[in-house]
């Protein structure tokens, strides 16, 4: 009873979950730079690294909403696929290297996320596809 009461009270604390945007002209997929990994990125990365988050039902329920708000905010700061074309060449190359490191080491997608999103779990083969794509896009940017 007391716990239920606390949960109700928590709902009145604002969580400031980041907003989505309908138009994303700088999107990496829209601009044809991630064709071979489009579905993988959408399933495994876009919920934190884009302006097109597929919000789950608990996105509005505290305290889950707080964690979600923090992860999306931090995720977008580091890498936002919806604003990819706005990055400088140097930033793109740095970010592609980070993407490769993060997925190869298994640090990304976050465990707390894949626990709730089975479709975001990357197989070894999928990691290899992402790795090959980062190398191919890096080479294209360097040309």
């Amino acid at each position: 009873m007391a716990l239920a009461g606390i949960l109700v009270i928590l709902q009145f604390i604002p969580s400031a979950v980041p907003e989505n945007s309908a138009v994303n002209n700088g999107d990496i997929i829209l601009n044809g730079n991630a064709e071979q990994v489009a579905d993988l990125l959408k399933d495994a990365c876009y919920d934190c690294h884009s302006n097109q988050v597929d919000f789950p039902w608990y996105a509005k329920v505290a305290p889950a909403s707080w964690l979600l708000a923090r992860d999306i905010k931090k995720g977008r700061e580091h890498l936002n696929f919806s604003e990819w074309e706005d990055y400088s060449k140097r930033n793109k190359i740095g970010k592609l290297e980070s993407i490769q490191e993060e997925v190869t080491s298994g640090a990304m997608p976050l465990k707390v996320y894949t626990l709730m999103h089975k479709e975001a779990r990357l197989s070894t083969a999928q990691v290899e596809v992402i790795k090959a794509w980062t190398e191919e896009l890096t080479n294209r940017i360097m040309e």
Binding site: K89, R90, N91, I93, G94, K95, E97, N139, I141, M142
Partner: peptide
């Protein structure tokens, strides 16, 4: 290689 040099420098700047 050049791309890795750029990536390292990007991290240093960050």
């Amino acid at each position: 290689e050049k791309a890795k040099q750029v990536a390292r420098l990007d991290k240093i700047i960050e």
